[in-house]
Write a protein that binds this DNA or RNA. Sequence first.
DNA 1: TCCCAAAACTGACGAAACGTCGTTTTTCGC
DNA 2: GCGAAAAACGACGTTTCGTCAGTTTTGGGA
Lengths: 264, 264
Amino acid sequence: MATDAEPISPMMRRIQSRRKRILTVARELLLQHGYYGMTMDAVASATGYPKGTIYLQFGCKEDVILALAAECLDRRLAMIRRAITYPGKTRARAVAVGEAVSLFARLRPDDSRIIHIATGPIREKGEASRLDAVRRRESETVAVLHGLLTEAMRDGELVFKGDATVEEMAFGLCALIEGGYTLIEGGFPEHTLGIEAPILEMWWIFNRLADAYGWRPYFREWDWEETLADVRRNLFPVEAQLVYGEGCWYGDMGPKHPGARRRF
Amino acid sequence: MATDAEPISPMMRRIQSRRKRILTVARELLLQHGYYGMTMDAVASATGYPKGTIYLQFGCKEDVILALAAECLDRRLAMIRRAITYPGKTRARAVAVGEAVSLFARLRPDDSRIIHIATGPIREKGEASRLDAVRRRESETVAVLHGLLTEAMRDGELVFKGDATVEEMAFGLCALIEGGYTLIEGGFPEHTLGIEAPILEMWWIFNRLADAYGWRPYFREWDWEETLADVRRNLFPVEAQLVYGEGCWYGDMGPKHPGARRRF
DNA sequence: TCCCAAAACTGACGAAACGTCGTTTTTCGC
DNA sequence: GCGAAAAACGACGTTTCGTCAGTTTTGGGA
């Protein structure tokens, strides 16, 4: 969509590579020294490009950060899009999406942090088009979930208990994810609630909510541990191994012996 | 707790009043011109105090904003604390808390915005003690909810269906609130999902989740509309009137005729 | 191959905001 | 009423952002 026709020109190519290098260096500085520590002069001297050259590509410092955030959101979106292709029941695909988000958070804490930074007042100053780029990616995430729910309903797997709407449920799930990871970022689950594995807790909460809305098969009707293992094995083999380590495909779902597994 | 012994000294008094005035003016500027538009020089000239005097009280610009956020969080906390005193079933008190948060969001959008601003990279620069002040108030909110759930369980009103923990549920509810209002702030429910009354949707989601965990009385077992009306009438008469208008105590729960009311 | 207009590059410079500090004024105990 | 200590003050130094006038590079036609 956004890929402009030909970057064939040698001039274009140089500009592209420079753009890439600026972002790489800026990211490094942002992560190392924070928002206030990432100065444009530092970016200039670290890249070796003069400041004027950098300002040819990015209108202001905040634009650089928004561009970085867009990259991070792209990586997350790519994982979510891969998850949504998981073959099988719609609820299993939702599990895959959840696992994608979870893996992303653990595998790329730096990306998560940048996404969070780009949520602050930075948006006040960024160019409109940069902001749109970020917003579009955020919307896309919501849209993917919304699409899955719509499909689930069409296929008769999601049959609301009582009155509800797909939009309501999508909003609920997105809020849960958004808020959950914000709280985790701030360390609240651990400090205030004494929760040791907050991401695992989110797994349980998700299943409660899915059951509550009437998404079949229910938690008790299916071997979700196997589904999760399958998602990790077949959809995210590299990522899962990096996060959970060799052979530990079940590591994140709590105690392994079925008797100790949670039920509801 | 944090109220220092005596502000009796006339000197102290002057300092306090000045501190207050600085915050008032800074708030105005922050809301009007955003983070980048609120300059310390502007605060100085608008208050009439020289810059040096302002820097006697606040170490840096970010400290001023954190102090503003602490005030906003205090106001929200006060409403939540009032809500928790609602006499009756624990789940009804949870409804009161939810209504407190909802009223706050509608009644004080400016406060909500400031709380949001104080979530960004501003924290990188603020003094540790200021940051602690904000964090303490955030924790307190979580603690109130956690306490209510604990009480509910002790009284036998909250009996988990299957395995769950109070902490898990508290985390879920907090995530929902946190994420929900973040999404609302960004306009997502409206733009991406076409939701017209997102706060109302959160009401439904909350009830789903409370039912799912086994919090009695269930949604279908109780006249929650009456509870909500009672909360508005007796706990937040002024606030509810400001938000919903004269006599419209039921305005936010959707269609008024019972037949059209949602059920599950 | 050379030339020249257009595009891209450069870094010194100006502006704006932050935060400080030496001087002046006020406070308060005696 | 006196003097030391605390507070007030605002001009000044510093940092960082963002620009722009002058210079270099590019690319295509004679």
